[in-house]
Every structure is written in structure tokens, then in C-alpha cells.
Design a protein around this nucleic acid. Structure first.
Lengths: 168, 168
DNA sequence: GGAAATAAGTCAATATGACTGACGTAAATT
DNA sequence: AATTTACGTCAGTCATATTGACTTATTTCC
């Protein structure tokens, strides 16, 4: 059976409790996500941007030519919620728009050089945190973590997510 | 080296890409958290509550006698943000307050029977999702996932979190 | 005993990110 | 030509968060 182990590097208090019911994972997910988002948030504040801007910039930067509809499906927000954020990013030259070459109703989204730079800076902060976490866990942990997170996603959404991450 | 493996149960597309730079984990964390919070959100909506109510109710329920200050530190929000949410929960009899026995300035928070029932219902939804994810990953995965998430937390916060999860 | 610090509540004003519902326009599809 | 689609926009609303100032009760420190 699994003995809990927080611990390894700096943790002040190891741990002890067998977990048939993984309530601890609920709380760890909350705290991990809280701190995970805090690094970019600090940088974004300098630019007058929020978390919503980050998400848009991130997915556009990673997926050049993304359509507005795609973004709405990924973020699961409404057109109106996206509008203000996207408008700001376009006006301040972090994202550019182009009509679709086949279908000109579409507005394909691209990160500008400025946009890419900011996105990279934010991604860097987050990969640093992830890398640090990965060094603290056993070999092969990255795959396990990946699989765990992947299976936390709604089953019917996993395909879309996998395709998105792999870049189509 | 690590070959990616999304996949196992239902995933429509396995995967393939070696990841020295774990950008995929950034996105997986986003999607995992998005869906992780969606289950409780749906229930909370029935009660006219939001995510903020959930967080308060959860931590009070898990830690009877928690003080307002503790809650502020855990949630990293301001007193004013907490006030409205906590007030509602107290007024609608999900949480009760008691002056601290040693220090009567303190108001110790407790979940009522009603509060415990709702908290349990929400916890149940989240543990179900986690359990499903754990069955899809190799044995020992739970510990790895726990360690990974734990090390995603700010180093100087880990002790507090460990203590909180273990119940002091 | 009096001053200072602490725990908590409260007021006012504001920002951000989200929502619904309706409507308009251009372009593609049928 | 009619319909559907992609996108934008208007108006109004809500939930969650912020800052800063101020009050009250109580405890602690000198």
C-alpha cells in the first residue's frame, strides 16, 4: 500500500497517512494551481494584463493561425468574454489577425514578435516551476504526471486536447 | 528517454513527442484544472454559490475551528473578498462561528451538518474524478502525482500545506 | 494601568472576467 | 436565392477579486 510521501528536498514535515480516498490530491491540485498561476500573474500585472490575456496569448502563440471559434472551444468562454481581451491584445500589438485564405470570414490569429516574446517569458516561468518539480520526483515521474493530468480531463475532451498539444 | 503517452483507455490519439521542455504539462494542468472544477461548479450553481464558496466550505469543513486569518492565508485573498462569501455561508447555515476559547477576538469557523453534507457531496465528485484518473496510470502513480503536485507549490509554502493536509 | 498590536468586521470605490440575449454583417454553402 | 456560418458588437448583469481607510474588541507588552 502507498505510504504518503511529501518530502524529498526541503519539506519541513514529511507525512504519514494511507490514502484510499485521495482527498489530499484535491487540495494539492488547488495549491499547485494557485502557485503555478502566480508567477505569470505577477508579470502580467506589469503589462496591465490578467490571466485571461495570458490564456489567449498562450494558445495563439502555440497555435499560429488559430481561429476565434477554436479559442472559444479551448477556453470554454463566450464570444463576449473573449472579445475585450482579444481586442486589447490586438490593439496593443501582441496579436495580429488575418482573414482565412480559404474562408475569408475567418480571422486567423497570430502572435506578433512582441506577443511571442511575452508568451515565451510567461511559458519560461511556468516550465521552470515544472522542471523544478520534476527533478524532485522519481525517474519516469514526468510521464506519470502527464498521464495523471491527461486522465483528469473529461474523456470526451481528451482527443481534442491531445491533438492541440501535439500541434494537430 | 521518455516517449509521451497520453492514451491507455479511451484517448482517440496516442501521442509522440519527446519533451525536454515540458510545455505539454502547462497545458495539461490548465485542462485538468478546468475540468476538475467543472463538476463542483455545476452543483454549486444549484445552490446559488460559486467557486469561492466551495473553497471556503471545503477548508472549513476539513479543518474545524479554522480562523478567518488562516483562511485568508490559505486562499490568498483579502478580508473583503472573503467577507461576502463567508457571510452568505453563515447566514444560510452552512458555517457556524464561535469565539476562540483562549482568545475571544478570534472567530473559529465550523461547518454545520448542512455544510458538511454539501462539502462531502462536492468532495465526492472530485475524488471520483481523481480515482478514475488514478486507475488509468501505472501502479504507484498516486504517490508520483502527489509528489509532483506537492513540489509545484512554492517551497516556502510546502510546510504549511503539508501540515494543513495532514490535519496539523 | 496604559500603549500597542492583533483579529475581525465594515464602508466605499473599482477592476476583471465571466455571463445572457439579441442583433448585424460578410462570406460561404446548399 | 435562402440558409448557415464566422465573427463582431451592444446592453445589461453578476461573481470574484482588489485597495485603502476606519471601527471594535481583545490581548499583549512595557
Amino acid at each position: 500500500m502507498t505510504d504518503v510521501n511529501f518530502s524529498d528536498t526541503l519539506p519541513p514535515e514529511p507525512a504519514a497517512s494511507t490514502t484510499a480516498i485521495p482527498i489530499d490530491l484535491i487540495e494539492l491540485l488547488f495549491f499547485a494551481y494557485r502557485d503555478f498561476t502566480s508567477d505569470p500573474d505577477a508579470v502580467l500585472a506589469e503589462f496591465g494584463f490578467g490571466r485571461a490575456h495570458h490564456r489567449v496569448l498562450h494558445f495563439v502563440s502555440r497555435n499560429p493561425g488559430l481561429r476565434v471559434t477554436d479559442l472559444l472551444a479551448i477556453l470554454r468562454i463566450t464570444k463576449q468574454s473573449l472579445a475585450r481581451v482579444l481586442k486589447q491584445l490586438v490593439e496593443e500589438d501582441y496579436i495580429s489577425q488575418e482573414p482565412g485564405p480559404q474562408d475569408r470570414r475567418e480571422r486567423l490569429l497570430f502572435a506578433t514578435a512582441k506577443g511571442k516574446a511575452l508568451a515565451a517569458r510567461l511559458t519560461d516561468l511556468q516550465t521552470q516551476r515544472i522542471r523544478r518539480a520534476l527533478t524532485a520526483i522519481p525517474a519516469g515521474g514526468q510521464d506519470i504526471a502527464r498521464q495523471f493530468l491527461y486522465h483528469m480531463i473529461d474523456p470526451d475532451q481528451r482527443g481534442d486536447v491531445a491533438r492541440l498539444i501535439e500541434g494537430e
